[in-house]
Simulated scan of single mutants.
Amino acid sequence: MTQPFLIGDSMTGGYGGADILHSCTIAVEKGEIAVIVGPNGAGKSTAMKAVFGMLKLREGSVRLQGEDITSLTPQARVRKGMGFVPQTSNIFPSMSVEENLEMGAFIRHDDIKATMEQVYELFPILRDKRRQAAGELSGGQRQQVAVGRALMTKPSVLMLDEPTAGVSPIVMDELFDRIIEIARTGISILMVEQNARQALNIADKGYVLVQGENRYTDTGQALLADPEVRKSFLGG
């Protein structure tokens, strides 16, 4: 069997004493969108942080392109091609949009102009506001800066923790459209999302977590069509 492009395999762990994740498995293929959904306190963001190395696993492993990266720091994982956008504190508010993007390229020693141009093509409003302090932007525009900054590392995997938290439905739809565009370039997307129905609609694969365990795993469309999933997690 071929290995998934990225997998957090049978992950068990938590912060200090009690385990939050219980033999939880999350995987994403190259160029696919995988979405983690579930009720509050299900361990969704914890699973994401475990994959990125922000949580020490008691059991299980994380592999990227077949390589075991379980012992690597988050910084080392960025160098391996993982980009992570946390839900909060994900921009430098006093810096300009352009400076935020430049900070995203901190690990690179080549010319970053072409990547910056790609970010501006993906998010045209950022080009217009590139000299403006990022903290002055709307919530949706700040999210675009955060995603753009992660893309500046030229990641092979982009991990997004609640990318549409606190934005309007119109902005959410626009962000999801951009996420689809990013995946089409071959970048794998792994995201945690509260707007489960909309997220599963764009997902190649969906994971429903409950109390740190895998409850349902299937394609996004299959989960949307599953009466049990709809009743319990999607409001009917």
Rank of each mutant, 00 (worst) to 15 (best):
L21P: 00
M103V: 15
V167Y: 07
D68G: 15
M172E: 03
Y120V: 02
L209T: 06
T115H: 10
A183C: 10
I189G: 01
Q198T: 09
A134D: 00
V192G: 01
L160Y: 12
I180N: 13
F176P: 00
E117S: 07
L55I: 02
G83L: 03
T153L: 15
Q144M: 14
M152K: 08
K80M: 13
P93K: 04
G236I: 00
D68H: 13
G135L: 10
A146I: 09
R63K: 14
P93V: 06
Q211S: 06
E228S: 10
N201W: 08
I187H: 10
I179A: 06
L200C: 10
I170R: 07
Q143G: 01
V210F: 03
T70L: 14
R178C: 01
I69S: 12
G206L: 05
G212T: 04
V145L: 13
L57H: 05
F123Q: 08
I107Q: 14
M152H: 09
Q141P: 05
G104I: 04
I33M: 05
G236N: 01
E98P: 08
A203H: 14
A203P: 13
Y207N: 03
A18I: 11
Q65P: 15
A27L: 15
L224G: 06
R197C: 05
E99F: 09
G53Y: 04
I187Q: 06
E181F: 12
V37I: 15
D177K: 08
E59R: 13
A105C: 12
R142Q: 14
L175Y: 12
K231F: 05
Q198K: 12
T73Y: 07
E117T: 05
S232W: 02
A165N: 04
N195V: 08
N214R: 04
V167W: 06
V62N: 00
E67D: 15
N214K: 05
A18K: 13
R58D: 06
R130K: 04
E121R: 12
E193L: 03
V157A: 11
M48R: 00
I180T: 10
Q211E: 08
G41N: 07
I182S: 11
L21Q: 01
